[in-house]
């Protein structure tokens, strides 16, 4: 499964998902009213040190956050230009800290564990007909569909280039949508053939094994 999880045995990995999530929520609330740059910078350094739990790989993967860094630098300049440099500095430190901590939780928690931890929160959805089984199935479908859709788009683009010699760009989005939706219909049919989202478990008509002809 594609995931941001970094396998490891650190102490932070060993804390279970529930407490980690709760701790993250608590810290976010605590950090929010901070308005002194010193405290914000301290929190940021602590987060940076905590991050060592995921080792070099963790710091390296932080590079994926580059767009956020640009955004934060932009934000700081914006604050400086409008004469609120100090509050901008606090904001940037605070945001960095929160992002680091949240990312740390993500890097050290398996997706399955995260899902299990969230199960109590999701249970009420049962009442509107969304069972945890359906959620799991939907997640699997999304992860499965994503590469299929990219493949479809690439094929379509290649076919267009072969016939015109030009890059396709947005003009292929409509045929792509129709193609993708057809795929969805086929998938629905195949899912129904395998018992649908609810499976065969609770088909009373099927008790006692398969009737023989």
């Amino acid at each position: 499964m594609i995931s941001a999880y970094i396998p490891g045995e650190s102490w932070f990995h060993r804390i279970s998902a529930g407490p980690k999530l709760l701790g993250l929520c608590a810290l976010t609330v605590l950090l929010f009213p901070v308005d002194k740059p010193g405290i914000a910078a301290l929190a940021f350094s602590v987060a940076l040190v905590l991050f060592s739990a995921v080792g070099w790989e963790g710091y390296r993967r932080l590079m994926a956050l580059r767009p956020v860094v640009y955004l934060l630098v932009f934000l700081l300049i914006f604050h400086a230009l409008t004469g609120t440099f100090v509050s901008g500095l606090v904001t940037v430190f605070r945001l960095f800290t929160m992002i680091l901590l949240a990312t740390l939780v993500t890097f050290t928690t398996r997706m399955e564990d995260m899902l299990d931890a969230l199960n109590p929160v999701l249970t009420p959805l049962n009442f509107i007909g969304i069972s945890s089984r359906r959620i799991a199935l939907a997640i699997a479908l999304v992860i499965r569909f994503t590469p299929v859709l990219i493949g479809l788009a690439e094929e379509l683009g290649a076919a267009y280039r072969a016939r015109t010699g030009k890059r396709a760009g947005p003009r292929l989005t409509a045929p792509f949508a129709v193609l993708a939706l057809r795929t969805a219909d086929h998938v629905s049919e195949a899912l129904a053939a395998r018992g649908g989202a609810d499976g065969f478990e609770d088909t009373a008509e099927f008790d006692g094994g398969l009737p023989k002809k």
Partner: peptide
């Protein structure tokens, strides 16, 4: 939800709870 539990599916390969702590 998938992004929140750690799938790096936001543009630029971002994912995880961090994105919900960012300015956007």
């Amino acid at each position: 939800f998938l992004v929140a539990i750690g799938a790096p599916l936001l543009a630029g390969g971002r994912g995880g709870l961090g994105v919900f702590a960012g300015p956007s």
